[in-house]
Design a protein around this nucleic acid. Sequence first.
DNA 1: GCCGTTTTCGGCCCGACTGTTTTCAGTCG
Length: 574
Amino acid sequence: MPRANDAVEAMLIEYADLLSILFDDPYKPRAYEKAARAVGGYPVDLEGKDLPEILKIPSVGRSIGEKIEEFLGSGTMAELEALREKIPPGVRDMMSIQGLGPKKAMVIYQELGVGSVDELVAAIEEDRVAALPRFGAKTQENIARGIGQLQSAGGRVKIDVALGVAEVFVDALSSLPQSRRVAYAGSLRRMKETIGDVDLLVAGDEATPVMDAFVAQPSVARVLAHGDAKTSIVTELGLQIDLRVVPEAAWGAAMIYFTGSKAHNIRIREMAVRAGLKLNEYGLFDAKSGELLAAETEEDVYGRLGMGYIEPTLREDRGEVEAALAGEVPTLLTEKDLQGDLHTHTNLTDGLASLEDMVGRAAGLGYRYFAITDHAPNLYMQRMTDDKILAQRARVAKLQSKYPKMTLLHGTELNIDPDGNVDWDESFLAGFDLTVASVHSHFNQSRDAMTARMLRAIENPYVDIIGHLTTRQIGKRPPVDLDLQAVFEAAGRTGTALEINSHPDRLDLSDEHVLWARRHGVRFAVDTDAHAVPHLDHRRFGVGVAQRGWLTKDDVINAWSLRRLQRFLAEGRP
DNA sequence: GCCGTTTTCGGCCCGACTGTTTTCAGTCG
């Protein structure tokens, strides 16, 4: 369930959208958007908070504060309701069409009486949009295409898909003689779980040949814009890619700008303005003299603003600017810190690879320990038995002699049944080096039942790690309904680790859940849940989530030494 | 609407591209 903050954020953004449609003043909606972001990123849950508490949120003044208070108390806000009376919700929906903003949406509504995307489609078919003042055939065509894009792709792709596309383009552009440096930036570099469009950056003196080579790539389906500094295309998959070419001397400033996030950029630009400076994609300048102060590396630019380097995964305006100013940016978990993987499967159950192949790849990754955690009997389709899992334990023990530098741990992935019970009795569970417990069915239980179920599993002394807590599958299955506050408190109190499942379809916990859970002292396990050898490399995505959740290696049990991990696993057992 | 060791009023992040315009508004990132 979303926090109250998320509901408030959505309310403020809707209000800002309606203001931008109805009025000309651009600053008022911007103030609401800014406040909305501040609320969304605010670490304290606003549920039940009074006005003095609300006013502690930056960018929230009396006017917005009172609206938030009203909304928290009544679930709605009178002035928002009043604006909703004036504008059908479909007009706001139209703003999600590429190329159609608040002003054009309002003209379409006022002049044509068109108040929904469906009605807009009809109006375009009748050629009525092109005839509007300051519209035209081109504009109508672009809106039509924007609608097509909105309805087909729906926008975002999963991070592994975007990364694959980005790497192809980076390779192609890197081979050009005009390219000095090539990199992807944007939300992909920040490791967001889904990617709306891919941002590419090339350093070079000649933009035109790079832009021409870009639009000539085989997977380009359509060119949206083609300029000297900026070009945008859409691939056959419907993924938009933006390319910017900048002078090499401005690489650092450009990387900061194109990595974002937008909120982060706004924060540091405001800081620059206040210091009498100007920051853009070409560098940091003295506002008066125009003198260039920093541009070549990201470190230079942040340094000149009085901050240390900020990792891309932190750049969301969730406190990283304040931390950097105070010199308190945490040293984030990296792939290299991971000493092992604690959730993996073999072909004894539903994995594709043999025990030997999985362990072989784990050794190749340089792990100091590695856990095999095949499914337990209560997931009946896996056909697990006591004899089979004990035979596997013997095989693991035998295989150990081949890997003197890596300790093999024999574990299992238990099934949390609807009542919160898991497979096997305590004496049998005591025989495992570690256990992961996860929900695999009955996703639609009530919030109360699901929370009780999860708490019971967390309290079980033989459960070491909760796997994929919410069971969401990105774009396919929603998360289960849970009282996360209660779950995180219990996990922190009992020392039950929560998994960050690294599979790009899951990424469960999400970054926001990690931020929330770590405030309760929760420990995490960044695991792959690998069902095949290549899945072991998904850890890069799990590490991305961990970084976005501000985790250091001290927070992550499989970044610890074997001794420390074993002490952690032993704690709480009878 | 918010905010202030340059400001309690007058600013508000900045630049590129498109389309419909004869100098710029709208949109996007």
